[in-house]
Amino acid sequence: MASLSTWSPIVLVVAFLILAAVAYFFRSRGEPRYKEGTAQTQVFLAGEEAPEPDKRHIRAHNMYWGFFQALKRYYETTMNAHTGIINDYIIWFTSVVAITAVIVFIAGMV
């Protein structure tokens, strides 16, 4: 396989391990004498008091808001097609069978 002849995951793993070792070295040079439970280990939010954990965690429905807004019409159309009604599933099935059969027959005539 052409693509596999140029691909070696072992090289990548070795590179990752070297980088991890370098990162660990720099991390170990950091300040070890911090005090647990003091301002040194608290969340820093531009000097403001950090909200409670429940309020601080970004929930799934808040993520990629801009992406969904940009594709609002696409999502509205797609969501509307997902009715959850099994009769609709069978209508889709019948339609796709008909379309496929027509394609197979037309292609045979050309």
């Binding site: 959850g84 609709d88 889709w92 099935f93 069978v97 496929t100």
Partner: peptide, 30 residues
Amino acid sequence: TALDKIALALLVVALAMKLASVPLHMWAPD
């Protein structure tokens, strides 16, 4: 033959629905 083509269309789409290919996929998340 023409009948073989009909059988082909039926087999392809029936199996596509079982493997949850779009637009025959809607049962799969449920």
